[in-house]
Design a protein around this nucleic acid. Structure first.
Lengths: 347, 347
DNA sequence: CTGTTAGCGCTTTCAC
DNA sequence: GTGAAAGCGCTAACAG
């Protein structure tokens, strides 16, 4: 019925006494440092097992009295999602302070591989960890690999560079996000025939390209009555997207859906407003922001696919810290979900 | 471009020196303990502000050298969701150990108010916190309030008792979850007319009743072509749900959807199998488990509304710990999301 | 290869 | 009202 636990945790001192060695030797074994006889190691390990010893993280952190410095490289050109992300990094920074960690935020033009690679090369040597909104480019990968070679822990954030030596990717599975959008589109347009407009920021951005791929895959495989139009590139810009959406509506009287894999949703909203209530379009967008939230509540957007920037920021910081201190990483806790928001489950 | 931060955090010792008082007095001010002259308080507070002092949580935890004991009261009759929850509490317990916290798990028949109230009354006085899968009943609320009066921190988990004095509810907004299911049902059945079967475990369970309420609300307000049938109570039991679903299918040739607000989905799957491929039913269920995951991948279940038991367990533990130590709670991080899973965004 | 020891920042007890 | 000092569990520098 009830399962009880020990009350006093055994300490390293207990382990040392049990094994008949000193504190320092016990510590060496715990940290797998060498310079300990095989036989002694076994004695200590037996004591650890017997006493169920678990290190006291607070004490370790206190005595180490080391601070960690992390650089977060975020895109300079800020849309609403990036602004949210930056704010969440700021909050995470507050939390990290309590763990002796410090975050410096840098804003870089991540869309230019040369600039981004240079920023990585030029990174002051004071950082033990870097979280970067990456770009999947050979020069960028090389710069990241160089940091790793210098002993800096690197994680990619939101956008990955799979061929690199980064320790972790903190972000969603973008092909799956596209498929999710495709399935919602297909379901919501059940029984209808027509064209679906597809807008991306740029197909040279890995995440946008992957979303487009996943979306189209589901549409063509499972909803043959819905035809995905060739993707338009709006550079995440509202004005461009306004033009694109206006043209889609004008050129395709039988347009039944729009999927925007990128940002710049206000322009699409404007085009739909101009088209009037006569056009009943199922619109699926990404990222919950002030604008998209309002459009979702109004019923203009049918569903939003979201990644939680708060979770991403905290996760990146936790992982960097764990990499530095050798703590365990809990993959479950760090997996970034593909969230679906309808009007009804907004927070 | 780059924003830098201080490297050495100022300590309480720095604050004391700056204010011209002793460590002990500075500590008294930080913790708002009395026995300090008003003027001294102001001096110390000025020093804190000037130095940007933030307490070092690790040092505090170490010096306090106190362990916390929490009781988690989980339902005795275990369905797959509760089994997941129990497993996640176990994992959380591992993590808590590192924070000097210990969890005792108790399995109680939470469906019987008298038993649950008695279990709360009889709780040994060793616990400084309790997380309980509650039941919204006067006796249970009274027992919880009594614990609170004795200085025990109480949070409700998964199922709330709003009238009580519990500090927090860790779980989803169930009316909103029901509305979410209703909107998905309406969207997925766009353009169709017919009946929708509704199954709950029991309408006397607050969460099930609330989900039913939200679901029906959306259906009747926005999808008048879909008529929700009176709710059947299957007690979260597969065999009963099998009967219920079989009867629904037999009695309503124009049944187009099924919403199960509770557990016991295998029975529904069996009834649908028997009915054969001729019946195309949109089925929406709750909680991602081995069974429902498989049914979702197969296409039998159209969507799953989920609450993350891992998040719930960790959140309950973090909140209890924060209540005990006076640390800040970050509401954003603790909000339990109403998650929507389609085949495409599974994990 | 192993042991001794100072000290991390804070809490708490006791003394004045 | 205020201060001095011991000590939490661990790490790291140094000694042997």
């Amino acid at each position: 019925m009830t399962e009880h636990r020990l009350l006093r945790r055994s300490t390293l001192e207990d382990v040392a006494r049990e094994a008949g060695v000193s504190l320092a030797t016990a510590d060496r074994v715990v940290h797998r440092r060498d310079g300990v006889r095989e036989k002694t190691i076994r004695r200590v390990e037996a004591a650890i097992a017997k006493l169920g010893y678990r290190p006291n993280a607070a004490a370790a952190s206190l005595s180490r009295n080391k601070t960690w410095r992390f650089a977060f490289m975020l895109p300079a050109n800020s849309n609403a999602f990036i602004a949210n992300l930056a704010e969440q990094v700021e909050r995470t920074s507050d939390w990290l302070t309590g763990q002796n960690g410090f975050i410096d935020v840098m804003r870089v033009d991540v869309f230019d591989p040369v600039t981004l690679a240079k920023a990585l090369w030029d990174l002051p040597a004071v950082y033990e960890g870097v979280a970067v909104v990456a770009l999947d480019d050979a020069r960028v990968r090389a710069a990241m690999d160089d940091l790793v070679a210098r002993g800096v822990h690197v994680v990619t954030l939101v956008s990955d560079a799979p061929g690199s030596r980064r320790a972790n990717y903190v972000g969603i599975d973008n092909p799956a996000a596209g498929r999710t959008a495709g399935s919602l589109m297909g379901r919501f347009l059940r029984g209808q025939k027509g064209f679906v407009g597809i807008i991306t920021g740029s197909l040279s951005l890995r995440d946008h390209a992957e979303r487009h791929f996943g979306f189209r895959q589901v549409l063509s495989a499972e909803y043959p009555d819905l035809v995905g139009l060739p993707p338009a590139e709006g550079r995440d810009d509202s004005a461009r997207n306004h033009e694109i959406a206006r043209a889609l509506l004008a050129q395709h009287p039988d347009l039944v859906g729009i999927y925007n894999a990128g940002a710049g949703n206000e322009g699409i909203a404007a085009a739909l407003r101009e088209a009037g209530a006569g056009r009943d379009i199922v619109w699926i967008a990404h990222e919950l922001t002030g604008d998209t939230r309002r459009l979702l509540l109004e019923g203009t957007i049918a569903a939003i696919i979201n990644q939680d920037p708060g979770h991403e920021a905290r996760s990146a910081a936790r992982i960097l810290l764990a990499l530095c201190t050798g703590q365990l990483i809990y993959p479950d806790q760090e997996r970034i979900r593909i969230e679906i928001f309808l009007r009804d489950n907004l927070n």
